[in-house]
């Protein structure tokens, strides 16, 4: 089945089987390996991407469902060619360890910042309820992101 998905501003077209998931399309068709495959059942959030500006779990979506949609992956996130506020905060506070989950946290955090203007503790806890980190115990991530504001 012919599918065209706009990822980070570029159209990717391919003839795929309907059973192909969106995360496999992103990684194997578009060749964008920053989106990770974790639990494959929608629990861990490692595969989070944005569709039309909102987070989805790309392991729970078929590529055919995303046909014609506009997707942002970790490779498409950033500001003026560099890291955005969320990336800066996580990086400068060294809030990451193995970093397997980090792309999902950055994608969801970027959406949360866009949505709320500021990452308060409540916003952080509510936004990341579907993102699992097995290294940090979350505290360093919350501490790093608490108070981050959107700079226009």
């Amino acid at each position: 089945m012919k599918v065209t998905i706009n990822i980070n501003g570029k159209d990717y077209s391919a003839d795929v089987e309907p059973r192909m998931t969106l995360v496999d399309f992103i990684r194997d068709v578009a060749g964008l390996k920053g989106t990770h495959v974790g639990c494959e059942t929608g629990h861990c959030g490692a595969c989070s991407v944005l569709i039309d500006g909102r987070p989805v779990k790309s392991c729970l979506m078929l590529a055919v469902q995303a046909n014609g949609k506009r997707i942002t992956t970790i490779e498409g996130i950033g500001k003026d060619g560099g890291p955005n506020e969320v990336q800066m905060a996580l990086s400068s506070s060294k809030a990451l360890q193995c970093a397997f989950c980090s792309t999902g946290f950055v994608v969801v955090g970027t959406w949360a910042l866009e949505e709320n203007g500021e990452l308060t503790e409540d916003v952080i806890k509510e936004s990341f309820i579907g993102n699992v980190c097995r290294c940090t115990g979350y505290e360093p991530i919350i501490k790093a992101l608490r108070g981050v504001r959107k700079n226009d």
Partner: peptide, 9 residues
Amino acid sequence: IADPAIRTM
């Protein structure tokens, strides 16, 4: 309900 991503879908 669930998390923001699941609420999108």
